[in-house]
């Protein structure tokens, strides 16, 4: 195994482009190292990206949006003074990942690029309308968060491509987001169902919404029918019922050791209702801090 600590994304991308066999970028390592130890994936090339300038920064841009470095940990997001004011749902979703120890290492980018359909921060990122900046041999492109994962453990990144930043849009007034997951215990489980919602209100009426379900399909699902169920409503009981039905209908889950098809389908609706209420309350309370 070759271990590299490039000082720039350009170098990192070059090493990855030339590498043969299995390549992994090492952010927090909470997926990569666990898979290595468990003899599931032994990379031939390991590229540690934590030595690149700026990767540990959380930056508020002039338009009010945010740039989150690819080595920023969950704990750093939670402890940030303002990020959680704008995007409480996103920060809470990342905060659900693992334990205190894991929070000191795990990153948004790693969560996204690991490609797990149950990744907690991913529905929240997609709901927020986040994009990632991707650099590679053919230049730089900006990719919507929902376009990264293509299936369990698979991404749309080409060989040599690396995520260089996560971009979160500005939080407009009258917006709010939330994320909840279902696990059978209180901690240390993988989501059986996850749901992230970001919405905006004008007075009491919902004017825009993005509803994303996790762990109920091969990738996180951004579902327009769910959004349509609540857009134009005041999140009354009828709208909530429509949302729950749409969420259940959107599910394409499997039965496995973590839950059954019936269970995931039912609970997706329950969670969507609960998440929408929290996001709605937050939106009404004013959105951006």
């Amino acid at each position: 195994m070759q271990y590299h600590t490039p000082a720039s994304f350009e170098d990192a991308s070059k090493i990855a482009a030339k590498a043969t066999g299995i390549t992994r970028f090492l952010a927090g390592g909470t997926d990569v190292l666990v898979q290595l130890r468990a003899d599931i994936v032994t990379p031939d090339t390991l590229i540690d990206i934590k030595h690149i300038d700026g990767v540990h920064d959380i930056t508020r841009n002039s338009d009010g949006g945010w740039t989150i470095g690819v080595a920023v940990t969950g704990a750093e997001m939670t402890e940030h003074a303002d990020l959680g004011g704008d995007w409480p749902g996103l920060v809470e979703a990342m905060d659900l990942v693992g334990s205190t120890q894991i929070q000191g290492r795990a990153t948004l980018t790693g969560n996204l690029c690991n490609g797990s359909p149950a990744a907690d921060s991913v529905p929240a990122m997609i709901a927020a309308g986040a994009t990632v900046t991707v650099s590679g041999p053919n230049g730089t492109r900006e990719v919507a968060a929902e376009d990264i994962a293509t299936g369990p453990g698979r991404t749309s990144l080409a060989q040599g491509e690396i995520v260089t930043a996560v971009n979160i849009p500005p939080r407009a007034a009258g917006g709010g987001d939330a994320y909840l997951r279902f696990i059978p215990r209180t901690e240390m489980d993988i989501a059986v169902v996850g749901c992230g919602i970001n919405l905006a209100v004008d007075g009491d009426t919902i004017t825009a919404a993005r509803v994303v379900l996790g762990a109920v399909a091969p990738t996180a699902l951004l579902d327009q029918a769910c959004a349509d169920a609540i857009i134009g409503s005041t999140l009354d009981d009828a709208a909530l019922e429509k949302l729950a039905a749409a969420a259940s209908a959107a599910c394409n889950p499997i039965t496995d050791k973590r839950g059954t098809i019936e269970f995931r389908t039912k609970v997706a609706g329950v969670l969507a209702r609960r998440v929408a209420k929290i996001a709605y309350e937050r939106a009404q309370a004013g959105g951006a801090s």
Binding site: R185, T186, I190
Partner: peptide, 14 residues
Amino acid sequence: NDVFLDYRIPVASD
């Protein structure tokens, strides 16, 4: 489920 992630023994907060 041959790891503690999926063999779900109670954690302290349970």
